[in-house]
């Protein structure tokens, strides 16, 4: 019984941790959207900045990856 409650807590925690991935989605969308709006204003400068965009995406995504990691650890390692 006690184990079941622990397991339930772990599953609920995993589900809650997954909301962090939504934040990462918002962040990545923000980066790309702003890049696109800037690129449409000045298309000639856009090609040189795609690498910077990907770096920004990677940094924004890293935090979502951490919440994914927390969810996985709660599911399988706790």
């Amino acid at each position: 019984m006690e184990g079941d409650i622990v397991q339930m807590g772990a599953y609920i925690g995993a589900g809650l941790a997954c909301t962090g991935m939504g934040g990462a989605a918002v962040g990545v969308g923000h980066v790309v959207g702003n890049f696109l709006s800037g690129a449409l204003r000045n298309p000639s400068a856009a090609t040189g900045q795609t690498a910077t965009m990907f770096i920004g995406i990677a940094f924004a995504e890293a935090l979502g990856i951490f919440s994914f990691l927390v969810a996985l650890l709660l599911m399988f390692a706790v």
Binding site: A58, E61, A62, I65, F66, F68
Partner: peptide
């Protein structure tokens, strides 16, 4: 110091 963690988990994840 978080770099290797995010670097690896991003790809695997």
């Amino acid at each position: 110091f978080v770099r290797p963690l995010s670097h690896s988990i991003r790809l695997a994840g």
